[in-house]
């Protein structure tokens, strides 16, 4: 095989991969720009006439912006809280002497793995007893728990990367552990912190199961719940579903295009290390 043919084959394969990765998303984007008639045409019409009707209707009839607001609040707060707690824990696990480090890391991993159903009933009961169903904190607290393993693992591995000497020097200069952490470690590990933030945010933005259980009031529902429960009486409002889906996805697409390197590094830091 000549080098040129090989190259062409490679580009073709890559193109196929990219095409199939994007196809469903592009199809929904396309659908969201169709008029009502085009959406339900059989056979499907490939090209939309660029109508914004679906977006308007999703906002006016289905309270789309409400869901967006709730998602921002929940995902934002989760990210912030998880990050703060993970910085402490990650620092301790990376730098300080703790017994049973392996067990701690292992049990964190375990938390990130078991199916939500094994804790759903009790979590629901706990929140009920506090009267926290249908409140933001009622969803944020479980989310923080579920994203902590991710945050701690990523930050631990990033903190370990940093040279210990800097910190020792700071300690010699009379900094406490605490000061060393915030003056030296965190700024240096900022890329890691930022990576963790992106991943946590994506997780909280996308989570559906707990949101479905805890947020039963439309006022507090997040985007995934809203999109899953979209239904009209006489037809499926596919145009509106596509519009809402696009709105839910675009921030993520932007994050991915802007920060793909960091995301890749963060995901692999959690996984392949050792």
């Amino acid at each position: 095989m000549s080098g040129r043919a090989k190259r062409a084959g490679f580009y073709f394969l890559t193109l196929v991969i990219v095409f199939f990765s994007l196809l469903p998303f592009l199809w929904f984007l396309d659908t969201s720009l169709k008029t009502q008639r085009e959406v339900t045409a059989t056979p499907p019409e490939l090209f939309p006439s660029g109508s914004l009707h679906s977006y308007q209707s999703a906002i006016e009839q289905y309270n789309l912006l409400h869901y967006v607001k709730n998602s921002i609040i929940v995902a934002g707060a989760t990210t912030l809280i998880t990050l703060i707690i993970s910085v402490f824990a990650g620092y301790a696990l990376a730098r300080l002497r703790i017994k049973y480090k392996g067990v701690i890391m292992g049990s964190l991993l375990l938390v990130s793995m078991f199916p939500q159903i094994s804790i759903a009933g009790p979590v629901w009961k706990i929140l009920q007893s506090f009267g926290w169903l249908n409140t933001y904190q009622g969803l944020i607290l479980p989310y923080v728990t579920l994203t902590l393993p991710l945050g701690v693992w990523i930050l631990t591995s990033f903190f370990k990367e940093l040279p210990e000497e800097l910190e020792k020097a700071a300690r010699v200069d009379g900094c406490s552990h605490f000061q060393a952490l915030f003056k030296i470690i965190v700024p240096l590990a900022a890329p890691g912190v930022f990576t963790a933030a992106i991943l946590i945010f994506i997780y909280a933005w996308n989570e559906f199961f707990f949101a479905l259980l805890i947020m039963t009031q439309q006022k507090y529902q997040t985007l995934p719940v809203g999109i899953a429960l979209f239904q009209g009486q006489y037809t499926m409002p596919w145009g509106e579903i596509a519009a809402a889906s696009t709105v839910a996805t675009v921030p993520l697409v932007l994050l991915v295009f802007l920060f793909q390197k960091r995301i890749i590094r963060g995901l692999s830091a959690g996984a392949v290390k050792g």
């Binding site: 934002g76 707060a77 933001y136 904190q137 900022a190 890329p191």
Partner: peptide
């Protein structure tokens, strides 16, 4: 790697703002 400190700081402030708005809204 150059890290967008400014951007991060801004987004954290934004989060803080959202967070401070949040608890009153919840109850």
């Amino acid at each position: 790697q150059r890290f967008p400190y400014g951007a991060l700081a801004r987004s954290l402030v934004l989060l803080g703002l959202i967070l401070s708005l949040l608890f009153p809204a919840g109850c």
